[in-house]
C-alpha cells in the first residue's frame, strides 16, 4: 500500500505575524518558512504505519511554487520515499488543491491519504474533506489515534463532545490532530540522503486542473486589541472588581 501525505509550506509557527500596512497581506519577507506542523504529524504517522509493515511507500505531495520543494525535501529527510510537487505559480485554494490531489491519486492509487487537520496560515481545515468528497471515499478528520487493520482503519477523532471512533474502509482520507504523535527530528545524514531521493514536478495544467471559482481575498487588518486591564493585589480585590462588573 502507498500512503500519500499532503504537506504545505507555511510561515513558521514561531514567527510573530505582522499585517502589512497597505492591507495586502501579512509580511512574509525574510520570514522563516516551515512544513505546516499538522502536516509533519501526518507524515510521522505515515512513516510509522510503513515501519510497522502496513505500507510499502510514503509519498509527500505539495502544491505551490518551486519554493515548496524545500518543504518536500524536509519530508524526504524525515523518511518519505519520494516527493511530488504540483507546480503552480499562484496560491491555490483548497478546492483546487483537492482536485489536483485527485489527479495524483488516479496515477498513484494510494490506500491512504493523510493531511494535517488544518494549515496554520489560512486555518481553513478543508482540503482533506474536499478530497474525500471528490474521490467519493470516507474521511476521518481530527485523528488522535489511528490503527490500520488490513483493508480498513480505526480512527479516534477529537471532537467537541469528546473522542469519537469510526472505522473506515481503505482507501480513505485522514486528517490528523496534535496529539496523534510527536514528529521525529531530522538528522544531518538524512538531509544528505534526502537530496538523492526522487522529487517529481508536475504542472497543475498538465494534470488538467484549471483554477476557478476562487474566493476573493481582500483587505487584511490586524485584530482588534483588548484594552489594558488592571492588576489587583489579592483575592479580596479580585472579588471586588468582579462584583463591580456584575460578574459575581
Amino acid at each position: 500500500m502507498k500512503i500519500l501525505v499532503g504537506i504545505k509550506r507555511v510561515v513558521d509557527y514561531n514567527v510573530r505575524i505582522r499585517v502589512l500596512s497597505d492591507g495586502s497581506g501579512v509580511d512574509t519577507d525574510g520570514v522563516k518558512m516551515s512544513v505546516n506542523p499538522f502536516d509533519e504529524i501526518a507524515l510521522e504517522e505515515a512513516l510509522r504505519i510503513k515501519e510497522a509493515g502496513n505500507a510499502d511507500e510514503v509519498i509527500v505531495v505539495s502544491a505551490g511554487g518551486d519554493e515548496c520543494q524545500q518543504q518536500l525535501r524536509t519530508g524526504l529527510a524525515m523518511g518519505a520515499d519520494r516527493a511530488i510537487q504540483i507546480q503552480s505559480s499562484e496560491a491555490l485554494q483548497p478546492l483546487s488543491v483537492a482536485r489536483a490531489f485527485l489527479k495524483i491519486i488516479e496515477r498513484e492509487d494510494p490506500g491512504l491519504v493523510i493531511f494535517g487537520k488544518q494549515a496554520i496560515d489560512d486555518d481553513n481545515s478543508q482540503t482533506g474533506q474536499m478530497l474525500a468528497a471528490l474521490w467519493d471515499r470516507p474521511q476521518a478528520t481530527f485523528a488522535s489515534k489511528m490503527v490500520v487493520n488490513g483493508s480498513s482503519a480505526t480512527v479516534t477523532r477529537e471532537v467537541d463532545a469528546g473522542l469519537e471512533t469510526v472505522e473506515v474502509d481503505l482507501p480513505a482520507v485522514v486528517t490528523v490532530d496534535l496529539r496523534l504523535n510527536e514528529p521525529r527530528f531530522v538528522k544531518l545524514p538524512d538531509i544528505m540522503k534526502a537530496k538523492r531521493k526522487p522529487l517529481d514536478v508536475v504542472a497543475l495544467d498538465e494534470l488538467g486542473v484549471t483554477v476557478e471559482g476562487n474566493i476573493e481575498v481582500g483587505n487584511h487588518a490586524p485584530p482588534p486589541q483588548r484594552e489594558k486591564g488592571v492588576m489587583v493585589e489579592d483575592a479580596a480585590q479580585l472579588i471586588t472588581e468582579l462584583k463591580n462588573r456584575g460578574l459575581l
Partner: peptide
Amino acid sequence: NQISDIMEVNGPDSFKRPIYAGNAIVDV
C-alpha cells in the same frame, strides 16, 4: 470553495474571517 469561520458579515457574499490564529482579519 468554502469560507471558514465567518466572524462578521460585510454583505451577502462578503465576510470577515480570521487567519493566522486570529493574528490577521481578512475580507473575503
